[in-house]
Computed example of a mutant assay.
Amino acid sequence: MGLALAGGLLGMMPPAKAADGKLLLTGGVSSIDGAAGGGLTPWAVTGSYATEGQWGATAHLTSVRTGDYAMNTGGVTVAWNDQIELSLARQDFDTGNTGTALGLPGLRLKQNIVGAKWHFAGDAVLDSDTWMPQLAVGIESKTLDAGGLAPTLAALGARTDGVDVYLSATKLFLAQGVLVNGTLRTTKANQNGLLGFGGTGHTKMRLMPEVSLAWLLRKDLVVGVEYRAKPDNLNPSILGAGLKEDDWKDVFVAWAPNKHLSLTLAHVDLGRIVPAVAARRQTGTYLSAQVAF
């Protein structure tokens, strides 16, 4: 349903000047939650290459594979005037052998994410020779379809819907080809919402930091690292430390042969996910393709 609504948004966009005003790769890529930025965390940039007076849009498909799990994500963003971004994303998480061990073979956790972002100050490119960063505030409304796991999450005190609010600051040092982003997120999400929101004794939003560092090797190629802190609301629980949640991190490379296509490859470390069953750290690959209009 979310992607159908996104298609409707794209169809309603009025004609405008082509969305090609930004420098290559300065619109970021699509995060797993749909917002523009890095793969794991949003930045203060708006999606696509739309700048002042322009509409733009992106669509992405992302696949994450770790030792015990797999997740596919698809979504779209619509941006206006380099100030407003609306995004929709759909996540499909395959629990693999963990679902089977929990008595739920074939369990897939599905999450819809509706996001909005407002770039309210600074300009990453025009202010690149000053200390002023680009600033944006965003919101992500998440709804989880937990299938047969829903009664367990309820027993743990976790809801199946939640809202994240974040503030991002993106600083581009254009002459050096370096981008630094810091994001502060208020959230109750467990494993980004795939295990619900909050838990017994953890009903308040928590402030969590996220950091990205990217280096432009050439105009169409960038490498970088990301770190995203997580709240760990389900630890301890009735399973002891069996639902302990670790922070996420990755090392990525993104290539954009032109302003219509970008490909991102990363090595991700998602820490332990339900270590009561899958004790090893969940490391693996992240592959994403984005098209921009």
Results as ranks from 00 to 15, higher is better:
L221P: 03
V291R: 13
G99C: 05
T203I: 12
N192E: 13
G148K: 08
G198L: 07
W131L: 14
A146I: 02
T186K: 12
P105I: 06
R280I: 11
K230W: 06
H60M: 14
T46R: 08
G122D: 03
G157T: 00
N181D: 13
L195W: 01
T58R: 13
K204R: 15
A254K: 10
L172F: 07
L270S: 02
S212W: 01
L3T: 00
W131S: 12
L167G: 09
D123G: 07
G177T: 00
V76I: 15
D250S: 12
F120M: 06
A19N: 06
N97V: 13
T160F: 00
T160H: 02
G122C: 08
W255N: 11
R272Y: 10
W55I: 07
T98E: 11
D250W: 04
L234D: 00
S262H: 04
L24I: 09
L207F: 12
L107W: 05
A57T: 06
T66Q: 06
G53T: 01
H60Y: 14
K17H: 14
N258Q: 11
V277G: 05
P257T: 05
G27V: 03
G177W: 01
V277L: 12
L25I: 07
G138Q: 03
A101T: 06
N235D: 11
A155R: 15
L153I: 02
I113N: 07
W118I: 01
A256R: 07
A158M: 01
D246M: 08
V225W: 05
G199I: 00
T203K: 14
T264F: 02
Q191Y: 15
L167T: 09
D220I: 02
I139P: 08
R206Q: 12
N81F: 10
L9T: 08
F252I: 08
Q111D: 00
R185N: 04
A89Y: 00
N181E: 12
M71S: 04
L207N: 11
P105R: 09
G224H: 04
L221I: 03
L10H: 13
T152Q: 10
P231H: 02
N192L: 15
L243P: 04
G240T: 06
G34N: 04
A89I: 00
A289D: 04
Q134F: 00
P151V: 02
G138C: 05
G162I: 00
H267E: 10
L61V: 13
G199K: 05
G53W: 14
G115P: 03
R206C: 10
L10M: 15
A155Q: 14
D145G: 12
W80Q: 07
Y166C: 08
A256D: 04
L10W: 11
D161G: 13
V76T: 07
L23G: 15
G8F: 11
N258I: 08
N192F: 12
A175L: 11
A19P: 05
D20R: 15
V222D: 08
G199F: 00
I113T: 03
H260G: 15
A4S: 13
